[in-house]
Amino acid sequence: MYAFEFKRPATLAEAVTALGAEEAQALGGGQTLIPTLKQRLAAPAVLVSLNGIAEIKGICTDDAGRLCIGGGTTHAAVAKGAGAYPALAALAGGIGDPAVRNRGTIGGSLANNDPSACYPSAVLASGATIVTNTRQIAADDYFQGMFTTALEPGEIITEVRFPVPMKANYQKFVQPASRFALVGVFVAQFKDGVRVAVTGASTGGVFRWTEAERALSANFSAAAVKGLKASADDLIADIHGGADYRAHLIGVLTGRAVAAC
């Protein structure tokens, strides 16, 4: 780790100011950033912890019935407190291990946008809205590729608003070493249609599998996606599995998610 200045603001306003400094870096739960710092792969001048900001923590339901989760809310808190959206709570409860879940935050995960992270699939499949200190961003506009998002430098995720689907389920097939998603599929059925988001599989990060969405919107059953093959184009190929394997898993997991709804 290189030396850095450490700040732990108590309010969002203070955090925004602190992040205005030269080479400042926001620190959420640190589950990616701390290992990166320890390996000297990042060298921020100022590390601004968002963990002391009470106003970006917590879970509630808004007037529109959306489940609203503060950006600084830990995975463990979501697993316990998102009962209004059981599939989301289950997803949060399956991230990493207890140590990760007690430190890692939803805002941190979404800001990092690891192509194998679980949360992006829930956000995209739910059509959630990402609220920052400056604006609201639709999920379909937010994810812009591997480790790339619509966030501007210094912008902080304060809240994520999830429309609650009628039915939903997340299926994760873990990479054996990291236990991140080798492929993860989140299926959400709303009145006006079905959304299917896939994480872990693509070099472009989380994406919607529109062919499955069409099929499931017409007929919400595992049979509707049986035989439907995801394209292997642009999928990740590594020592844990080729693109064709990941494409195959997308189909399997989508079917399982629907069956589990």
């Binding site: 054996p176 070493a177 020592i239």
Partner: peptide, 24 residues
Amino acid sequence: ALLESAVYDENGQLLSGSYMDYAM
């Protein structure tokens, strides 16, 4: 039998050089 493997690429870089890729 099921998990562990030290994998080198053709340039001699250890691809499974951390617990992110070396499955214990």
